[in-house]
Structures are given as C-alpha cells and as structure tokens.
Design a protein around this nucleic acid. Structure first.
Length: 568
DNA sequence: TGTGGGCGCACATTTGCCGTTTGCGGCAA
C-alpha cells in the first residue's frame, strides 16, 4: 500500500458520492482527506500518525485502515457496485453536476451517455422537475460536442488573442478603460480562457458592440454584468468580459485576476474581520461598501503589500508577503542580454535595437546573433562576427547613455564542440551558448554537450537550457539539477528566456537554481523591437519562482555587470 | 464527513451571475 493509492481511493469515493448526489460537504470531506495526504511531504511509512491528521476523521480513517489491512476499501467497493460506470462521463457535460445527474438517474434511470441521449430525444428529460425544454436541447448538443472541447492554450497563443481583442476594445468609445485579468495576467504557462474587466456606464451597448466586432462562435451568457462568449480565433477560445463602474474597477480586477485560491484566502481574511469581499468592493460590518483606487490600496486595507498578479497562486503567497519587497520587478531591470539583429535572423539593425533599448531606459545591452552552424538563421562566420564587433564598438562611441556589448549566441554542436574557437570567443564581451540541434540525443549526450559549453571559460551563460516550447515540444530533456550544479561549480549564469514560447528555465528549476545561489539572466531573445517587451512577462514569470532582485543579473548596475561578468 | 466546543449541533474555502425556471444548480476568479 502506498500513499498514492490511498489518495486515489479518496478521490474515487468522492467522485462516486458526487454522482449519487450526496451532501456536498460529505463529498468535500473525502476530497479534503486526499488533499491533506497529498500536501504532507512524508511517505506513508514515515507517517505513524496518519489517523490523527487534521482532516482525517472516523469515516476517512476507516477507509485508510481498510486499505492498510486488506488492500482495498469496502466503502469504495460498495460504491462501485451502486454507481454504474457509465455515469462518470456525464460529469464532463457542461451544465451537469452531481445533483442533476442524481436527479436524472432517480427519475429516469439514466446510467450512461447513451441512455441520456435517448431520454433527451424522447423528451422525457424535460418532464423531470428542474429540467426544461431548453436544458434538454442543450444537453443533446453538449453530448454531441463531447470530446471535441477545446483544451488549454499556451501563453504565447493567449498573448496574441489578448492583443487582438484589446485592439478591438480600443475602438469602442463607450469603454472608459479596460484590463486583461485572469490567468494570463498571472503569467500562467497555459490558460483555458481570457478575462477582461471593462469600465463602462453603458454595459449593454458595449456588450452589443463586442458581439459585433469579435469573431463570435457562440454566446454563452450575456447580461449587464458580464458577457461570456466562445471566440473563433485560430483556435476556439472562451472569453469573459465583466462590466463594472470606475469605483469597482480595482476590486473587480483583483477578483477576476484570481487565482481562485488566492481570492478565497483574501475573503477568509476579510470574513475573520467581519467584512465581506466581492468583486464590487469590501462590505464592512455596518453594510457600507468600500471601494479602492487601486489594487495596491485594496491590499493595504488588509495590511498587505501589493501582491503582484503572478504571485497570486495557491494562497500561500499571503503568508510570504514580507518576502515580496525583495523580489525582482520590471523597474529593476537595467539591461537585456540576448537579442538578434539583421546580421543573423533578427528583423532590425543593430542601431534600431540600440535605440529601442535606450527608449526602455536600459544602461547596457548585449547584441547576440547566431553563429555559422545555424545556417537557417544566417549565423555569423568568424569573419562576419569580427566585422560586427568593430561595427558595434564604433556605434558604442556614439552613445554615452547606454553601453553596447559584443556578444554571440553560439551553437553547441551535436558532437559537443562549440561553434567558435576560444581565441575568437576571447574577443567577445559576452558569450551565450545554446543548443538548437539534435534534440533527440540521449540525455547523456545532451549533458556532454552542455558540459562542454558550461565548462568553457569564455562562456557566460546557457540560454533556454531545456529547449522546450510551451504546449508544443518538451525540449531535449537535460538533467537540469545537474546543470544547475555545474553552473554553481563554474560560476555561470542560466537563462530565463522570457519569450512566452519558452519560459525556459521553468519555475521549479528557477527555484532550485536560486537555492543553489546560481545567478539567472532574464532575456527576451528578441528578434524584433516589439519582442523586447517580453522582458515584462519574463519578469512576471520570474516572480512566480520568487526570484529575488539580486539573483537576477539584469538588475545589477553596469559597473557590477562589467566587474563580475564581462571582465571576471 | 470533519472540526470545534461542548456532548447536540453549527459550520465547513468565498461570493455573485446567468439560465432556466420561478428556487437553485453550475460555473468562474
């Protein structure tokens, strides 16, 4: 018997009880028991007090004893007999929950998708109290659609969708202001929908205009408080628009940014003080509703610092609020150290990239075009990069407000050699090494390549260390903890590639790296000027790993950057 | 069903919108 089995047993019991239309708190008690075990870091053999855990009581404890003594649970066995297995897929039908399924089963003996479909077609469902004609029609539709439902979309796809919706909203004059909310605002790697808060005095006008200008596949719901639609934008995507007044904006933005767990924690705090948080404000004990000019003021009202959206996760961020002041922010960023120009596969000249970085207020930057192995990217030969170096040096003399360093993003070749010889690397200020080929090699071969790069004295940083593309490919599967150890050993930087396609390293590895005192560079890897903006979302992603300012080398002043990295 | 506070009974992770039906389930952050 292991912990996983116990956890899965609890979850199954909860699921079956839900299908029986059991008391939701009873169902919840089994889910909670599963959760308690999951959150406990100890293995089963280390838990001598398992029956004494908070959340495990008489009923749930009996299940554990059953499992430990007999390897199976009597309760689950009974439920499995009582609940037809065909019922389980019914929970996936939007609009059907445990209670409605139980009702249908009791009234019509529904025990599978097929019997439900038949009951809808013979119009028996609409005769059941609580169900009507519309529900019956909708159920039939949903049954046909089952399985074709859209999954989660990667953040880079969501970003495109958000931008295009925002462009449409700017054209609606009745919209006073708006903001994206939801999981995209929290910089999640994947989202299942997009959420917007809209300030307007004329919600119904805005609603109708949105329905006109957006590529609507389906209108799910639409009132004066919200509009829910399915949009047809390359992929199908759910979109929610919430209409609020200016005064409600801050609390609405907070509420619809989530996460749900974060909101629940905040509301618990309010409740313990006799107050009530909703998206419309904070209701105090005397019944008056207080609103706020900003999320910052809202948090301050509960004696909390501003918690950045990206940190609003499982609620535990509230317990760590005093650490927030030390985390990296976009304002701390002084430079971007990975970008491409027309010399390789970038879209803009060196000068144009420099001007763009100046506009961002950076004090320094590094030009890092590809090297000649990467033919598709027009990688630079030794001769061309020497020309580029002299061009950059000349250009650098024109500016006294930004320092332009000569760098490269050098390929680590499939056989473990590096694309440039040491004597050439020596002439550069900053060397990024990265893998762009032969992803299917064994982990051993990949690690040999990475070791060759990270142990080279002229290499400063390993870029996008796993090669993953979110929602598309897993990368080349390096042993990242080992790579982090090497980074520590050779005093090298690892990259957090801020391009939303990558977010590489991922959160869990960033946390390990920071613990090991390995420095991180957040880079945009920009191939065009507008991609320099990805520093913002890159920093948000870094915050999710609780990266401190001093961990991130982009926050270092120019002098420190030169002293510790360029001329170390 | 579990916990807490008191041995029987609340309250449980919060709050509000919409659709469909006319009280409430499902859903969302």
């Amino acid at each position: 018997m292991n912990k996983k089995t116990i956890i899965r047993t609890f979850e199954k019991i909860a699921l079956y009880m839900e299908l029986l239309g059991e008391n939701p708190f009873k169902v919840g008690a089994f889910r909670k028991a599963a959760n308690v075990l999951e959150l406990d870091p100890r293995s089963l053999s280390e838990m001598d007090d398992i029956l004494k855990l908070k959340g495990i009581g008489k009923g749930t404890g009996a299940v554990i004893i059953d499992l430990l003594e007999k390897g199976e649970s009597d309760l689950l066995k009974e439920l499995e007999i009582e609940v037809p297995s065909g019922l389980i897929p019914l929970l996936r039908i939007p609009g059907l929950g445990g209670k409605k399924i139980a009702k249908l089963r009791e009234a019509l003996g529904i025990d599978s998708l097929d019997s439900l479909r038949a009951a809808c077609e013979s119009h028996e469902v609409s005769k059941v109290p609580g169900f009507g004609k519309k529900t019956e029609e909708k159920l039939l539709q949903e049954i046909e659609l089952l399985g074709t439902k859209k999954g989660k979309l990667p953040v880079w796809q969501i970003e495109t969708i958000v931008k295009s919706i925002e462009a449409e909203m700017r054209g609606i004059s009745e919209i006073i202001r708006f903001s994206v909310a939801g999981s995209f605002r929290r910089a999640k790697e994947e989202s299942s929908d997009v959420d917007f808060i809209i300030v307007t005095d004329e919600p119904s006008v805005v609603r109708e205009k949105l329905l006109e200008v957006l590529p609507i596949e389906e209108t799910v719901a639409g009132g004066d408080a919200k509009l829910s639609v399915v949009l047809d934008m390359a992929d199908l995507v759910d979109a929610d628009f919430r209409f609020v007044t200016e005064a409600q904006f801050a609390t609405a933005l907070h509420h619809f940014t989530g996460s749900k767990d974060h909101n629940v924690r905040m509301r618990q705090i309010a409740k313990s003080k006799g107050m009530k948080i909703s998206e419309y404000g904070v209701e105090t004990e005397d019944g008056t509703v207080k609103t706020f000019d900003s999320e910052k003021e809202f948090f301050a009202y509960f004696d909390l610092p501003f918690i950045p959206p990206s940190l609003r996760m499982d609620g535990r961020e509230i317990d760590r609020a005093d650490e927030i002041a030390g985390l990296v922010t976009l304002e701390d960023i002084r430079g971007d150290f990975h970008m491409h120009t027309t010399w390789s596969d970038g879209g803009y000249s060196i000068r144009e990239m420099v001007e763009a970085c100046r506009k961002k207020g950076y004090s320094h930057m590094v030009i890092t075009d590809h090297t000649h192995y990467l033919k598709v990217a027009n990688g630079l030969t030794p001769e061309r990069i020497r020309n580029q170096i002299s061009e950059i040096r000349k250009l650098n003399e024109e500016y006294d407000d930004i320092e332009i360093f000569c760098g490269t993003e050098m390929d680590i070749l499939p056989d473990g050699r590096l694309d440039f010889e040491d004597d050439l690397l020596q002439e550069l200020d900053f060397v990024i090494a990265s893998i762009h080929s032969n992803f299917n090699q064994s982990q051993e071969q990949i690690m040999e390549r990475l070791h060759a790069a990270i142990s080279n004295p002229y290499v400063n940083i390993i870029a996008h260390p796993t090669g993953r593309i979110i929602g598309q490919r897993d990368g080349y599967n390096p042993d990242v903890p080992q790579l982090i150890e090497w980074a520590k050993q050779y005093n090298k930087i690892l990259e957090l590639n801020g391009n939303p396609h990558r977010f590489d390293l991922a959160i869990e590895y960033l946390e390990i790296a920071q613990k090991a005192d390995v420095k991180i560079a957040i880079n945009t890897d920009a191939h065009a000027i507008d991609q320099l903006e990805h520093m913002g979302i890159g920093v948000k992603y870094a915050q999710k790993a609780w990266l401190k300012k001093e961990t991130v080398v982009n926050t270092w002043p120019l002098e420190k950057f030169i002293r510790e990295i360029i001329r170390k």
